[in-house]
Design a protein around this nucleic acid. Sequence first.
RNA 1: AGACUCGUGAUGUAACGGUUAGCAUACAAGGUUUUGACCCUUGUUGUAAAGGUUCAAAUCCUUUCGAGUCUUCCA
Length: 561
Amino acid sequence: MSESERSLNFLEHIIEEDLKNGFPKDQLRFRFPPEPNGYLHVGHASSICLNFGLGLRYNAPVNLRFDDTNPAKEEQEYVDAIKRDVEWLGYEWSTERYASDYFQQLYDWAVFLIKEGKAYVDSQTSEEMATQKGSPTEPGVESPFRDRSVAENLALFEGMKSGDFEEGKHVLRAKIDMSSSNMLMRDPIMYRVLHKEHHRTNTDWCIYPMYDWTHGESDYIEQVSHSLCTLEFAMHRELYDWFLDQVVKDEKVRPKQREFARRNLSHTVVSKRKLLRLVEEGVVNGWDDPRMPTISGLRRRGFTPESIRNFADTIGIAKRENLIDVSLLEFQVRDHLNKVAPRVMGVLNPLKVVITNYPEGEEEWLDAENNPEDDSAGSRQVPFSREIYIEKEDFREEANKKFFRLKLGKEVRLKNAYIIKAESCTKDENGNIIEVQCTYDPKSKSGSGTEESLRKVKGTLHWVSIEHAIEAEVRLYDRLFTDESPDTHKDKDFMEFINPDSLQVVTGYLEPSLKNAQIEDRVQFQRLGYFCVDPDTSPEKLVFNRTVGLRDSWAKIQQKS
RNA sequence: AGACUCGUGAUGUAACGGUUAGCAUACAAGGUUUUGACCCUUGUUGUAAAGGUUCAAAUCCUUUCGAGUCUUCCA
């Protein structure tokens, strides 16, 4: 679908409307404003794609702004991780900004508000203020400090800034309306004292502005035209606008906050606290564990930036509650990897096959197409010999005709190689099949063009020559939670829904072309799925992660019977 | 319950008073295939409910029902 045909989402409609009403297109500006207090996750990815996508669509700048107003939780490490993730997704920000860049301006404006009689220093405890705040149905009562003189407010605020007071002693509040039906308008706090070192401003400040006071003004300073955030900030809009009203100049762009529904992905959790528990309780192996919904986790799992962007595009954006099935994401990664991932062969659950009429000690190298979806991908050679591995699931002594794979007396095609026929098999003392003896048709070589090679055989198996196979650790991932919405149960902890089989580690036997695979390389193990090379890989040991399996209609057929 | 936001198939989204409510996924049937993949064809399920306005309503109005958000010196 071309960009121009795509239907508009409600935010694009708003922008189009603004443009129609005379807002200059070249003044469109967006921003992505993460707080650097943790790792970005798939929900942020949607927001990134939304904001940067609008930037691309309207050829407008997009700032990356760190909302770093709470030094207690923020660290440089997160700033770096966030920048890496945004870059990895393939976006370029116009300028890198920090709310902390605006501390002085924000302070000056706060002084201005005090002078205007629109802000005051409150010297009560937080408990006192909380009780005075009232409830949604009951109006609040005004603080006894609400009518302090401008001079006194100025002096106290100056004292707060200079470090004369300990934390909690005083706060600066906006003087709005203690009986507003919107709790946020009941004299919200603008500044609190925090004797904490900030990762950028160090000890320059010991008062820090609150989110509401900071965000709109930062948007204004940066001249962001459309400030997009999630629905939980809808109620904040009134305050956002009130704060803007105090400082906006007519000739400048007045930012407009609009809210969209956060994207919820099934079978996962994204709250920082919950993710942290998964890490701390050892359910996963870190923030970038391939089962984590963090962008770093998705990256390590083998997801491509394109697939995540396409995912964000297809799910779109709206205002209603949603729970997006993770299979939509999986479809996107299969769709992309199908086009770009080289095909290789690897066996994860090996069963030995001996081709009895193939000469002992002989080997030959057969042509194998790298990617049928991509003509430019070329081909490689894979070794064939008398003893090979196939998957255990691909052989049965006997089976009905729905089973296209190898069974006694029947033929299958070995991908890129010959047609073989199962003659007999041997079992161990427990009755487990440990080896299959086959014969091959020497004239049936793939691509040879002989009559025999053109023979239609229903099943095609992947395989690997035992002698040439290289071993690798293969990590098979499944969804982390068995419940589609693990953290929405009132009476149950989300940890109760952990999938005990979310990780299975096996030894895989791979074709030798994989010997020099590099970290983050992505391939398709034919008939199995898409895999990528994990950073745990060393010269001694190859490690693969399964990104996602192939669609498996055989599994469905089996389930039915 | 006060305010705010929102209800379109199994999931996500579109239609901005005017075709048989579209698209993607999912599911199903068939075709193709040296991957039971991909691809192709066809099919299946939907406007929360009730009223009203209108020649015409998913769309506008009213009511009901349902969901979410808000009551942190977090963002």
